[in-house]
């Protein structure tokens, strides 16, 4: 499917999802759906760095929360429309990604992962001590009952924005996969030295991946204060964001954009159901159990069952050259 057609299909699916949620006419659907969509964005954004280039980022909470605090700061300085605030949050987290990438991308494997985790801890410590955005006691955000733009309930508006962002991040992820950039990312993931020897500017591409991934995580985090209405460092920087965001692509499959989407839809929905039927305390248990099960039973994730992203299933299918031709056409 060509890019334009895919975009139209994604927008049509998003419109259907929003329409169906409106038909149900239950506020909780939007509350729960918002969280599921937020994880679709986070998981897909994580996969741009973690799945495509193989750099495992444990610092999701840092990118996510920094943008949430950007919203708090902007709210105090000069209230702006939420889409603009999301862009600002994305910019701040994207810049953080760029900076973090520059400082840490010479590290590899576990060392890089630990550095990203440390970045989130440093950012949390900074926020705890920054009284302008509430410091350790947190900050309140007043959620208007309705939005002036469409006259719809504000939570529906948040849902709609997150839905739009989910479409955007999926379209971008797919675009990356099918572009020269995606080939460069794959080369970095497979063998950085050989990639560099093949002309791939590895450092520049890794910086691009960290910045893009961070920016999308930030855009997902920016509306958080209006969703929770009270933001404090322990909840904004919760390790659960990092754990969920890593687990979802791994369970869904990291090789292609449907992986994080399926993983996020499955896990986040299960967590939302468990929250109302059992307790939110079992959320991380669900992730842990699923992760163990999938690592053993489906190392290529759910999409691997359908042959997507499985190197062993690609052999002999005689499709690389036709694929090359199709892409170059």
């Amino acid at each position: 499917m060509r890019g334009k057609h895919f975009l139209l299909a994604a927008v049509a699916v998003a419109a259907l999802v929003f329409g169906a949620a409106r038909l149900v006419n239950n506020g909780y659907v939007f509350f729960a759906g918002y969280v599921v969509l937020q994880y679709v964005v986070l998981a897909t954004a994580w996969n741009i760095l973690g799945g495509y280039t193989g750099y495992v980022n444990f610092g999701t909470a840092g990118f996510f929360a920094l943008a949430a605090y950007t919203t708090v700061a902007l709210e105090k300085l000069t209230p702006l429309p939420l889409p603009v605030v999301m862009l600002a949050g994305g910019l701040v987290s994207g810049l953080l990604g760029l900076g973090m990438g520059y400082l840490t991308l010479r590290l590899r494997g576990a060392f890089f992962s630990i550095a990203t985790l440390a970045m989130a801890v440093v950012a949390q410590t900074f926020m705890v001590n920054w009284s302008f955005v509430g410091g350790s006691s947190g900050a309140f955000a007043i959620r208007p009952p309705r939005t002036a733009l469409f006259g719809i309930d504000y939570i529906q508006y948040l849902f709609l924005l997150m839905l739009g962002l989910a479409v955007l991040v999926i379209v971008v992820a797919r675009l990356i996969e099918r572009s020269r950039l995606g080939d460069g990312f794959a080369a970095i993931r497979d063998d950085e030295l050989a990639a560099e020897a093949s002309g791939v500017p590895t450092l520049r591409l890794k910086l691009l991946a960290t910045a893009l991934s961070g920016a999308f995580m930030g855009m997902a985090g920016a509306p958080l204060p209006y969703y929770v209405t009270y933001l404090d460092p322990p909840s904004a920087f919760s390790l659960a964001y990092a754990a969920n965001t890593i687990a979802m692509p791994l369970i869904g499959g990291t090789a292609s954009w449907p992986g994080p989407l399926v993983g996020a839809l499955l896990i986040a929905t299960m967590q939302q159901v468990a929250t109302v039927t059992i307790s939110s305390a079992v959320n991380l248990l669900i992730v842990g159990l699923m992760l163990v099960a999938f690592v053993i039973a489906a190392p290529y994730g759910i999409i691997g069952w359908f042959g997507i992203g499985r190197p062993d299933r690609r052999r002999g299918r005689k499709r690389a050259v036709p694929k090359l031709r199709e892409r170059d056409a």
Binding site: R180, D183, A187, D190, S198, G199, V200, L324
Partner: peptide, 19 residues
């Protein structure tokens, strides 16, 4: 040091695209 997740053809595509 081939790129193991890429096919032989895709391995060759990298330097063509990037060089």
């Amino acid at each position: 040091r081939p790129f193991p997740s890429l096919t032989v053809g895709e391995n060759l595509r990298i330097p063509i695209e990037y060089v």
